[in-house]
Structures are given as structure tokens and as C-alpha cells.
Amino acid sequence: TRVETATETAWISLVTALHLVLGLSAVLGLLLLRWQFPAHYRRLRHALW
């Protein structure tokens, strides 16, 4: 049971790290898009909202 718990903890930390990385890359990508294509971003936002 001790090994299982350790594996579970490792998986949880791995998944958390993955989610953090994905979230950060998504935010960075959005910022980059907004910085590179302001007109396109505004049009996209206008279409979405």
C-alpha cells in the first residue's frame, strides 16, 4: 500500500505540473497572438462576444 500511495502522489504531481505547463503555454500563446495580431484579435473577440 505504501508503494501504491507513492505512485499515486507521483501521478498527481505529474498531472498538476502538466496542467500548469499547459495553462501557462495557453496564456503565453494568447498574449503572443494579441501582441502580434491586434486587429485580428479584436475582430476575433468581437465575433466571440
Score class of each variant (00 low, 15 high):
47 A>M: 08
1 T>A: 13
41 Y>P: 02
28 L>M: 11
28 L>E: 02
34 R>V: 10
18 L>I: 12
18 L>M: 09
19 H>M: 15
30 L>I: 12
47 A>Q: 06
38 P>N: 07
45 R>N: 03
39 A>Y: 11
41 Y>T: 07
34 R>T: 06
4 E>C: 04
38 P>K: 14
19 H>G: 15
10 A>I: 13
28 L>H: 01
36 Q>I: 10
29 G>M: 11
20 L>T: 09
15 V>S: 07
30 L>Y: 09
28 L>K: 03
43 R>I: 07
23 G>E: 03
33 L>K: 01
48 L>V: 07
22 L>A: 10
18 L>N: 02
6 A>Q: 09
7 T>E: 08
23 G>I: 15
31 L>T: 12
8 E>D: 15
8 E>Q: 08
9 T>N: 09
47 A>D: 05
35 W>L: 15
4 E>R: 06
29 G>W: 03
4 E>V: 12
40 H>Y: 13
5 T>V: 03
42 R>N: 07
49 W>Y: 15
33 L>N: 00
15 V>I: 12
23 G>M: 10
24 L>K: 01
39 A>I: 06
42 R>E: 06
2 R>C: 06
3 V>K: 00
18 L>C: 07
5 T>S: 01
30 L>W: 09
49 W>D: 00
22 L>E: 02
16 T>Y: 07
49 W>Q: 00
9 T>S: 11
28 L>Y: 04
20 L>I: 13
29 G>D: 05
8 E>P: 09
27 V>E: 01
10 A>E: 14
49 W>N: 15
24 L>N: 00
20 L>Q: 04
35 W>C: 10
21 V>I: 14
13 S>G: 13
14 L>M: 13
42 R>V: 07
27 V>F: 12
47 A>G: 07
42 R>F: 09
12 I>T: 12
10 A>F: 09
12 I>Q: 08
25 S>D: 01
11 W>T: 05
48 L>S: 06
13 S>W: 15
46 H>L: 07
15 V>F: 06
17 A>D: 04
11 W>D: 06
25 S>N: 15
41 Y>E: 05
45 R>H: 05
18 L>S: 03
27 V>Q: 03
9 T>Q: 10
47 A>L: 07
23 G>D: 04
27 V>H: 04
30 L>F: 12
14 L>D: 03
27 V>C: 10
43 R>E: 05
44 L>A: 09
8 E>F: 01
40 H>E: 05
21 V>A: 13
47 A>N: 06
25 S>Y: 01
23 G>S: 08
1 T>N: 02
8 E>N: 12
30 L>D: 04
20 L>Y: 04
19 H>Y: 13
48 L>I: 13
7 T>K: 09
2 R>N: 07
36 Q>Y: 10
49 W>S: 05
19 H>R: 01
5 T>G: 01
4 E>D: 06
40 H>G: 10
39 A>V: 13
32 L>R: 00
42 R>G: 09
12 I>V: 10
13 S>C: 15
32 L>V: 11
3 V>W: 00
29 G>K: 00
40 H>K: 12
35 W>M: 15
15 V>L: 11
28 L>V: 09
12 I>W: 05
35 W>G: 06
40 H>L: 08
26 A>G: 12
46 H>A: 05
47 A>Y: 13
34 R>Q: 02
35 W>T: 12
35 W>A: 15
2 R>Q: 15
43 R>Y: 05
9 T>I: 12
24 L>R: 05
46 H>N: 14
33 L>E: 01
45 R>V: 09
33 L>H: 03
33 L>I: 10
39 A>M: 08
41 Y>G: 04
16 T>N: 04
6 A>R: 08
29 G>C: 12
29 G>Y: 02
15 V>W: 06
40 H>C: 14
5 T>F: 04
11 W>Q: 04
45 R>S: 07
2 R>E: 13
16 T>D: 00
41 Y>H: 04
18 L>H: 03
21 V>F: 15
11 W>F: 11
19 H>K: 04
39 A>L: 12
10 A>T: 12
20 L>A: 13
7 T>Y: 07
24 L>V: 13
28 L>S: 09
11 W>G: 06
3 V>L: 09
22 L>P: 03
28 L>F: 11
7 T>I: 10
19 H>D: 01
22 L>Q: 03
41 Y>L: 13
3 V>D: 00
29 G>T: 14
22 L>N: 00
7 T>S: 11
43 R>G: 05
43 R>A: 09
22 L>M: 08
20 L>G: 11
28 L>T: 09
1 T>M: 13
14 L>A: 09
2 R>K: 14
31 L>E: 02
4 E>H: 08
44 L>N: 02
16 T>V: 15
7 T>G: 10
4 E>L: 08
36 Q>T: 13
19 H>C: 15
17 A>I: 09
21 V>Q: 00
7 T>Q: 10
45 R>A: 08
38 P>C: 12
22 L>S: 13
49 W>T: 01
4 E>Q: 14
48 L>G: 01
27 V>K: 02
1 T>Q: 12
11 W>L: 10
31 L>H: 01
39 A>T: 13
23 G>K: 01
35 W>F: 15
47 A>S: 07
7 T>F: 06
28 L>W: 09
12 I>L: 11
